[in-house]
Amino acid sequence: MAICQCGNPVEDPKQQQLDAVFAKYSGQKGALIPVLQEAQNIYGYLPTEVLEQISKNLKIPFSKVYGVVTFYAQFHLKPRGRNIIRVCLGTACHVRGGAKIFDRIRTELTIDDGETTPDLRYTLESVACIGACGLAPVIMINDDTHGRLTPDQIADILAKYE
């Protein structure tokens, strides 16, 4: 339970959800990765305090938890943008000009691979393949796939995501 500035305990809905996750996986083997995944779904990223709680609850040393978090590309230690842009740079997209799309987004948003805009509107990531090779070159913004792209379409597409 979180403590309010006035000293009174308050209900923290995110904490309650996290506690429910701990209860769900209590005693299960190999629970670390699913717990991290669900915790990240709740918070949007993995703050240090959450990792500390996970370490304590699953009885896994903090160093090991940190090791797993930094090993997998899916886990994030910093807050992320409201809109996640995934630019596919897989083979099929590569030979059909995926890099040009990526460059255009970098110039439009003036951020680099893995970075987030200061207003937390966009996070930019390159990915190896999203398996929509038939539509190459492809990007994904949140859950929407945009395919058969040319660099000139980028500005309009980005503008749609607030």
Partner: peptide
């Protein structure tokens, strides 16, 4: 079902087993 967490090397069978066990893949 176990959902992966984004590591190509987990397609290698022994790395995949480590990942299911909750370790680095």
């Amino acid at each position: 079902i176990k959902a992966g967490a984004g590591a190509f090397v987990c397609g290698e069978e022994t790395a995949l087993l480590n990942s299911i066990e909750g370790l680095r893949g």
